[in-house]
Design a protein around this nucleic acid. Structure first.
Lengths: 242, 242
DNA sequence: CAGCCGTAGTGGTCTGACCAACCTGGTGAT
DNA sequence: ATCACCAGGTTGGTCAGACCACTACGGCTG
């Protein structure tokens, strides 16, 4: 009657594969993918889940933590664990990590991706932007040109592009661009770029983008945005390759 | 000399902010971002790190697990914890999760992003592809047309596009596209799409892409790729909106 | 009826133990 | 001298149980 033997006990749980925690992660992901867990819904207790999967609470917590960082789950102290809304913003938040930890040639690649997406997003925005959205864009444009504080300029610059991306109507694309322009990422690149007195050029490029948006001219918007990002891209390329 | 007191011992560690684990995650990320940890380098022991940050091993493990899932760290049982190469593929693996957990309108948005990136990547590939790479592409193209097994077709289809993305010369873009075409993602969409006898059309579109690559014609390649993805995109759109 | 407060429930953290895989270095046979 | 083997230490993986911190719910009080 000694069931202490290293046998597989847990009913019909999947066979051993990788670490226990990994299995737990897959299990929860599967529950969500199969619709057994809806966005916003509350999960069972950590203790419950652990027992249900036949693992310890520690291991289950690691799985939950991982899914939390991925933006799939959200743990509220004292209340419970919930599935996020699984919107683009939730899941793509981790995209910023890529930008933060990339260096050298990879930064150029990221800027290339951003140029492609940003130019398309700006073109779409030119066609679809509403007066309200346009006003919001202009707000940041003027604010950006009215101050000398680099921090503030950067903030408004980010907001400027964010509003445009939002106006493009594709939340997923906007979320990706958000990650590609994460605060730390731009701060690192911008620092050097702006030190070369690129403020005037940046201002001119922003004006061109704005003009295209007002004119609802997608092609002009695409070109202006591509040139804008391309300038930084080229500068960075020379900084590296010599 | 009794440092056993429950005091903040660790030199000048940041004050309390969020959960302990979260702080640990940030600490490791910072170490990497600041270059104190190089790609491929081995980290101190779990026990060491925990002691160094003044937290328990459990909490430190959660942090490590989270960074492992993000593709930043890699734990080798019995050996130690290492920083990954921090290449595009490592960090963007989590992108697949987004595709796996997205449904409804978000799937269309993802396909739209893919269309934008894939068309550009194919255009770049047309300009740069080498004979060797082209041969590889053709291998999968013919293999795809030579079988009836949907599983095999899907596998070669994925490889077909993967080779093209690789030929574009931007690893980051290739990694993102890889995530956007993850196995489970395409399986879900394809199932329905191909049931409508879209095989012939798909074959024709692949042929067009191949022709453009052979001719080193970027514009034709861009158009062909955009149309290819756009077809699926349109079909999915009608499936949802009615 | 409104507001306070206590208590049960839940996530957050810690401790300490043991298991399993890896790696190093020594030992012995060839 | 060389190489195969194996024994022990190091390190990640897992487990168990305890306590703390916060939330939410419901009864009690004014």
């Amino acid at each position: 009657m000694d069931e202490t033997a290293p046998q597989k006990g847990t009913v019909e749980t999947a066979p051993q594969k990788g670490t226990v925690t990994q299995r737990a992660i897959e299990a929860v992901k599967a529950m969500i993918a199969e619709g057994r867990l809806e966005p916003g819904q509350r999960l069972p207790t950590e203790r419950d889940l652990a027992a249900r999967l036949g693992i310890s609470r520690s291991s289950m917590r690691e799985a939950i933590r991982a899914l939390t960082v991925l933006g799939v789950l959200e743990a509220r102290h004292g209340s419970g664990i919930y599935v996020t809304q699984l919107e683009a913003g939730d899941l793509l938040e981790t995209f910023g990590v890529v930008a933060d930890l990339s260096r050298g040639p990879r930064l150029v690649e990221l800027l290339e991706v951003r140029r492609i997406l940003e130019s398309t997003a700006t073109a779409l925005a030119a066609a679809r932007i509403t007066p309200d959205q346009l006003a919001e864009v202009e707000k940041h444009l003027t604010a950006m040109n009215a101050t000398d504080d680099p921090e503030e300029i950067l903030a408004h610059d980010l907001a400027f592009h964010r509003e445009i991306a939002a106006a493009a109507g594709n939340d997923t694309m906007a979320a990706i661009l958000e990650g590609l322009s994460s605060r730390t990422f731009r701060a690192r690149v911008w620092r050097g770029y702006q030190e070369e007195g690129a403020f005037a050029r940046t201002r001119r490029e922003h004006a061109a983008i704005h003009r295209a948006l007002v004119a609802h001219d997608p092609e002009a918007a695409r070109a202006a945005a591509a040139a804008h990002v391309g300038e930084v891209e080229e500068w960075l390329r020379t900084q590296l390759g010599g």
